Amino acid sequence: MDVEALRTFVVVAGVGQFQAAADELGISQQAVSKRIAALERHVAVTLVVRSSRGSRLSLDGQVFLPHAKKVLTAVEQAERAVNPGSRPLRVDVLNRRISPAQAVYRFYRSRPETDLDAVTLDKENAAQAAQAVLEGVVDASFRALPADRVPTGITAERLLDEPLELLVGPGHPLADAPRISPVDLAGHRIWIPGIRPGTEWAAFYQALSEAFGLSIDALGPNFGDEALMDALADSASLATLVGRGDRYLWPRTHDLRRIPLHDPTPFYPHLLLFRTGDRHPVLTALRDHLRTTAPRTPHDAWTPDWTVTVH
């Protein structure tokens, strides 16, 4: 069914004359007549009855009119849904406690009128998240993806490098260190439960452990962040790694310590994945915000060799 013919029918029903409908639509009266005739052939009934005093809807036309209006409303809604800026920007932040979620929240706080949805996709790895972006499930996702695995149609922009810190309890031998080098962690047990094989964070921590001779333990069930904080507080040997911008909370009595890493400073390279050519104004604003607010990367920064380079 021709949408323009439907639109013409609705206008004719409203103004009562073919010439007036032609003037409103910016087409000729002949074009109005052809559209109405084509629509009547399609539905196999007479919709409009013409007379010397104008036009009126037939009984079938009166029945057809509300349905035609509903179709046009649905078409308009579909068009608005794919027009840049006509709907909220949907951003996958991976986990609401970690740096990408905090960065998107700060962006929203800087302009609270922004039409934005922060979501957490149930996707196991970066490749699945990138596919979700391609399919339009979300508009963008923060992930760490090797340069040679960025799919066609996706732009990967490195906008959120996150320096790592050591998190330990008060009884840990490194608890009072103002900062430490990654090589100083050799021989210490670093526990990061929940690392799943085949994920980008598994690849990152594998590269980190190989580069600095670390022992990163992912064994055991992941009972959540609170259980991890409890275990750190009670242990004199257990440690974990967190991002500097990650937001974890624990009871004051835990007395956990966040210790910066340096010489070099390992950075987790969160990439913003989005469809190439996406013109959503909130996406443009978010990218600009991340560029202008990102701290200067120190000279001793370390990331895996497979990381997308900063442009």
Rank of each mutant, 00 (worst) to 15 (best):
A218K: 06
G14Y: 01
L232I: 08
L121A: 04
W250C: 05
S52V: 11
S181R: 15
R7L: 10
N222A: 12
Y248R: 13
P298T: 13
S52Y: 04
L283W: 01
G187M: 08
R80G: 06
W302P: 00
L261Q: 04
L57V: 08
R50V: 12
T309Q: 15
M1E: 10
F223T: 08
E157L: 13
K123F: 03
V49C: 07
M229T: 10
T307E: 06
Q29K: 14
R189G: 06
P221C: 04
D263W: 01
S28E: 02
V3N: 10
W302Y: 09
A239E: 03
L39V: 07
I195W: 00
L261I: 02
P146C: 04
A78C: 09
L271N: 07
L59F: 12
D230W: 07
H299E: 15
G277W: 07
Y248V: 11
Y108H: 13
D300F: 12
D117K: 12
T152N: 12
G136E: 08
L116D: 03
V282W: 00
L271E: 00
A236Q: 08
R56P: 00
V91H: 04
A129R: 14
L249V: 13
V308P: 13
N125W: 06
M229N: 11
S235D: 05
A156F: 03
T155D: 11
A202M: 07
D115A: 14
G224S: 08
D300T: 12
V133H: 02
L57I: 08
G243N: 05
A175S: 15
W250Q: 09
K69G: 07
W191Y: 07
S55E: 10
A5M: 10
V71Q: 10
P112Q: 10
